[in-house]
């Protein structure tokens, strides 16, 4: 699992890419825990597809998420499951203009008045939506 230009380091038994953040590793572990909890309650033994909802302002790198997901789910009920990500675009609220403003980063100014510090109303989601299971 080597990507061009990346350095591979041994880390806790896994092989991770040194220039990738660990944030997504924690998130992936939580995703697996949610899946395992659901498997106990809803009686399934194999997951084929995992649907996640990830906001574009949530600072989650999808490439990292997919990489860690493949590593973390080895020898679990989600082994070789497909990870599908529904992206949620950022949306802010400007108090001054009382209008919704599309956001590409958390600190975009209002497109009308230029004011910073908009209230984020969408785009920070990190949810497990549904699973296709057998």
């Amino acid at each position: 699992m080597r990507l061009p230009g990346s350095v591979i380091v041994g880390y806790g038994g896994y092989f991770l890419l040194a220039d990738w953040t660990l944030h997504e590793l924690s998130l992936t572990e939580n995703v697996l825990q949610i899946i395992e909890d659901a498997a106990q309650h809803q009686k399934f033994s194999r997951v084929k597809i995992v649907w996640l909802e990830i906001g574009l302002l949530a600072c989650v790198r999808q490439e990292s998420l997919r990489f860690y997901f493949d590593v973390i789910t080895q020898d679990t009920i989600a082994h070789q499951a497909q990870l599908k990500v529904i992206e949620v675009a950022g949306l802010g609220w400007c108090e001054q203009c009382t209008c919704e403003v599309p956001l590409t980063t958390r600190y975009d100014p209002c497109t009308r008045c230029g004011q910073y510090g908009l209230k984020i109303i969408r785009g920070e989601e990190m949810r497990v939506k549904e699973l296709e299971v057998t």
Binding site: L27, R127, E130
Partner: peptide, 14 residues
Amino acid sequence: HPERMVKIERDILA
């Protein structure tokens, strides 16, 4: 077992 969909709707950090 046939494939089926399971609704989760849980925050990853719940």
